[in-house]
């Protein structure tokens, strides 16, 4: 549980610190005209304008997903320690290729976001298309990696190491598929001729979410490689 506790501690420290900065020396019982009731974080206790609801929503979702993976990784490490039957499975070389795909996907979406910001429709379309394409390649590649492992006799039920490999990659892929649904919607709107400015928020969320999932995959991959 150490991993999870560290994660929760970090979350709570950030959150607590933020709340602290809002409440320290505040004397809530004092009334004040709206505009002078300011706090260190910005006027009226509102967040700065860049912090939009969808972005905060994404941040919260990312926190939830991180909690989910932190717990799964904790379970992984604990199961490794508790049982005495752990047999590490070989990491298919294909995973390196898949990782490259996901990196490219993430870069492409970043490119699309930049395009949307600049109003550059061509890089928006291209980035969006490539980003999704690479991601689909990644998901298919993960499926192929499963097949390779199965073919090599590393069945799900055989060993907890195998089961965790399938569980972790499947959970990660599931999150990507969720992202792909949002991506498909955005692409559809772009194809229907939506202006770059109109899809900017969506593309931005996709790009940020993809970066998160890339980071997550790197952590998972490192874990699978090292244990």
């Amino acid at each position: 549980m150490t991993i999870t506790l560290v994660f929760i501690a970090v979350m709570m420290a950030i959150f607590g610190g933020w709340l602290f900065s809002h409440s320290i020396n505040v004397r809530p019982w004092e009334a004040a005209p709206a505009d002078t009731g300011s706090t260190p974080m910005g006027r009226n206790g509102q967040l700065p304008p860049g912090v939009t609801a969808p972005r905060v929503g994404l941040a919260v979702f990312v926190a939830v997903a991180t909690a989910l993976f932190a717990l799964t990784i904790s379970a992984y490490l604990m199961r490794m320690e508790m049982g005495h039957d752990w047999r590490t499975l070989p990491t298919p070389g294909l995973l390196w290729l898949n990782t490259a795909c996901l990196v490219l996907g993430s870069i492409a979406l970043q490119w699309a976001w930049n395009g949307a910001r600049r109003g550059d429709e061509r890089s928006l379309r291209l980035g969006l298309g490539l980003g999704g394409g690479f991601t689909i390649a990644f998901v298919l590649g993960q499926g192929l990696a499963w097949q390779q492992l199965n073919a090599a006799g590393y069945y799900l039920v055989e060993n907890p190491a195998n089961a965790f490999f399938f569980l972790l990659t499947a959970l990660h892929a599931l999150h990507l598929l969720g992202g792909l649904a949002a991506w498909a919607r955005t692409l559809f709107r772009v194809q229907r001729g939506a202006a770059p400015a109109a899809v900017r928020a969506s593309v931005e969320l996709c790009a940020l979410y993809w970066h998160f999932l890339l980071l997550l995959w790197v952590v998972l991959f490192a874990l699978l490689l090292n244990t």
Partner: peptide, 8 residues
């Protein structure tokens, strides 16, 4: 995930 398609 957070509704990404939201305009503006």
């Amino acid at each position: 995930m957070a509704e990404p398609g939201r305009e503006s």
